[in-house]
């Protein structure tokens, strides 16, 4: 306990080693995690959160690297959390987002952490939010969260950040893909990266056309930018658009509204998992699951009714 208190104190002072340790402690689900989060939470909420998402190989890491450089050169302190996938078989992971982080200057205040997504399917890791709060509480002004390479429906990033940048490439598909729901609906800024390749104009026009169809419904129309992150092209525009979006959110309490609705979602999720955990503990204690499985196998009862019976009996006592 004394150790944890010391770690928390040093984290709040911005000590890198302490921050790093504390993130690990929370990531590993140490018994002290609720205590840590309770102490950290009041100190969070000061940073601005930028999310970067997109398909694998679209240039997320490279873009993040360039953005971080710009943020640092403008004297912001920056925390980065980069999530990469985890092996479903071994539980191990190869986290490669750091390869793109090059040429850091010693005066820059940046903390970069790689995370394995674990078994979570939403594009972030189980403790990405907690870790970003730790970075926030440690005094970072900007938090950048990079998701795993996503498909069409990994949308957790929209629940964790203020500005979502969706990165696509000229190869990201035709008009039909853009008509589909999902990833494209959470973008605050669109980036067509690798714009030096053929097809970039086409995809950017398709996105604009998609946005045109929603004209009137959108209070913030996401800009569509062309970049070539590895060549450093278009990054300044992206940087400017992120701040334009931030300014937009800061008018009329929009940022507050957005964060409150995220908190509502988070609360709901946490209540659900509390209920599940508490109930399961009780169910494991009183119900004989194996016996029920036998009954279902022998077709004495169907799975849905069996589940209902177990839960109702559990709630009665």
């Amino acid at each position: 306990m004394a150790d944890i208190d010391k770690l928390i104190r040093e984290t709040l002072k911005g000590d890198k080693l302490a921050v790093s340790r504390l993130i690990s402690v929370v990531e590993r689900g140490h018994a002290q995690t609720p205590y840590i989060l309770e102490k950290i939470y009041p100190h969070s909420g000061n940073a601005y959160y930028i999310g970067v998402t997109g398909p694998p190989g679209s240039g997320k890491s490279t873009t993040v690297d360039r953005l971080v450089k710009m943020l640092c050169s403008n004297n912001y302190s920056v925390g980065v959390i980069a999530v990469d996938p985890c092996s479903p078989f071994s539980g191990g992971a190869l986290l490669g987002d750091r390869i793109r982080m090059n040429k850091r200057k010693s005066e820059w205040d940046v903390f970069f952490r790689s995370m394995s997504a674990g078994k979570i399917m939403g594009g972030l890791a189980r403790t990405t939010k907690e870790s970003s709060r730790i970075l926030d509480a440690s005094g970072k002004q900007i938090i950048v969260i990079e998701t795993v390479g996503v498909g069409q429906s990994e949308l957790d990033i929209a629940q964790a950040t203020d500005t979502v940048v969706v990165i696509l490439t000229p190869e990201s598909g035709d008009n039909v893909q853009l008509m589909k729901a999902g990833l494209l609906e959470i973008a605050d800024i669109f980036v067509v990266n690798k714009a030096d390749r053929p097809g970039a104009e086409n995809i950017s026009m398709s996105i604009e056309a998609m946005l045109d169809r929603q004209r009137g419904k959108l209070e913030w129309r996401p800009p569509v930018l062309l970049t070539s992150a590895s060549l450093g092209k278009g990054i300044e525009e992206l940087y400017a658009e992120i701040w334009r979006h931030a300014d937009y959110l800061r008018q009329d309490d929009k940022l507050k509204e957005r964060r409150k609705s995220q908190l509502k979602g988070e609360l709901k999720q946490r209540i659900e998992s509390e209920i599940v955990n508490t109930l399961w503990q009780k169910i494991r204690d009183d119900a004989d699951i194996d016996e029920l499985v036998n009954d279902i196998w022998e077709q004495k009862i169907d799975p849905q009714s069996a589940a209902g019976k177990v839960v109702r009996r559990c709630l009665k006592d």
Partner: peptide, 13 residues
């Protein structure tokens, strides 16, 4: 191989 052994490998290049 380390990944397949269940470790988290942060590859830096």
């Amino acid at each position: 191989f380390l990944k397949d052994a269940g470790m988290e490998v942060i590859y830096l290049g």
